[in-house]
Nucleic acid binder design. Structure first.
Lengths: 181, 181
DNA sequence: CGTATGTGTCTCAGGGCTAAGATTTCTTCG
DNA sequence: CGAAGAAATCTTAGCCCTGAGACACATACG
């Protein structure tokens, strides 16, 4: 209905990635750029999602990085405690990154560090009362925000997209280190 | 077939996001966390993709940010020139970010800055011969790398995923500023 | 017991990004 | 023409991330 619909690909109304692929077809016609259909869209969609998420979280005086830590602690259940290593795994972040995140949250009084009595290398991060209240408040609003972002997709489309993203994550992960399987 | 398959949702083999959703169901059963099925997977899948991409690009002595600029210039076609503003739009990045990217690429001799003769506010970035050679080499390998990451998905699944991501990007974008539509 | 090795966290150096505002240059209009 | 406003880019200040390696502690084994 709107805009031109070149070629046989009627499924995707022309978007930025479609233009990019057309550009490449003109400039380097010998290349098969079909992976961009999925992965360039993944990239751009994530960037937009992340901008939106960052603004929303920022309105509560939090960074996405800190929010990520708080939610990991919250959903772990009482006593809302995880080690730095567990937080690194859960947030797909380096151990150096976790240290910084914890520093900031501790300074803000949302978590406290506690050393393990049995293994003194281990440092737990535990939600304070303020941290628990904060994450419960922000997470509920976060879900509302995400629901709005998904408004244009039907429940069936959401299920399909969830399934395909899960499969893609697995596919990327398995390709990651050739000498590991 | 493999592993346990709890509940009626047989489509997604249990992954990290499924565990996260189970955790929330236990901790805050009153919340509807279904948006996470899509958006938490988008987030995690992107992070894995980005790690893989960063490693691959880094092996060529480039950062993803710089590669993004080089490809934008390359696919614009001869004379491989864009303004800073065009680069900002194309990379979904702020104007300050573009300035930094250009600084680094210029220092590495991959692009040069050129002022517009008619409008002296405008600064073009143009690929040097070295930059052109570099991007042509790295981009071809980049596509191969992406193809491997998609290996587990059928062509039909890729088309579906591309369509749904495009729709999602549009949905997020339209939700972005309530006072704009 | 004591060294070697492994593990968990932190420090350091170096990039990367953004928002806000300064600067330079165009455009408009009285 | 000249001043006000708009536009494009750059600067500044501040936050966030990573890899490499330091450090502290734990474990294995002779």
């Amino acid at each position: 209905m709107l805009g031109k619909n070149p070629g046989k690909n009627g499924a995707v109304r022309k978007d930025a990635v479609a233009s990019i692929i057309e550009d490449w077809a003109r400039e380097r016609p010998e290349l098969d750029t079909s992976p961009l259909e999925v992965l360039a869209r993944l990239h751009r969609t994530f960037l937009r999602y992340n901008n939106r998420l960052t603004s929303a979280i920022d309105e509560h005086g939090l960074a996405v990085a800190g929010f990520d830590v708080l939610t990991a602690l919250r959903r772990a259940g009482a006593p809302y405690r995880l080690t730095a290593g567990q937080l690194a795994d859960s947030g797909l972040v380096s151990s150096a990154g976790v240290t910084l995140r914890i520093d900031r949250l501790e300074k803000d009084g949302l978590i406290v560090r506690e050393r393990d009595a049995d293994d003194r290398r281990v440092v737990y991060s535990r939600l304070t009362d303020a941290g628990l209240a904060k994450v419960d408040e922000v997470f509920a609003e976060h879900l509302e925000n995400e629901r709005r972002m998904l408004a244009a997709l039907s429940p069936a489309e959401c299920r399909q997209l969830a399934r395909l993203l899960s499969k893609l994550e697995r596919s990327i992960e398995e390709t990651a280190v050739p000498d590991e399987g």
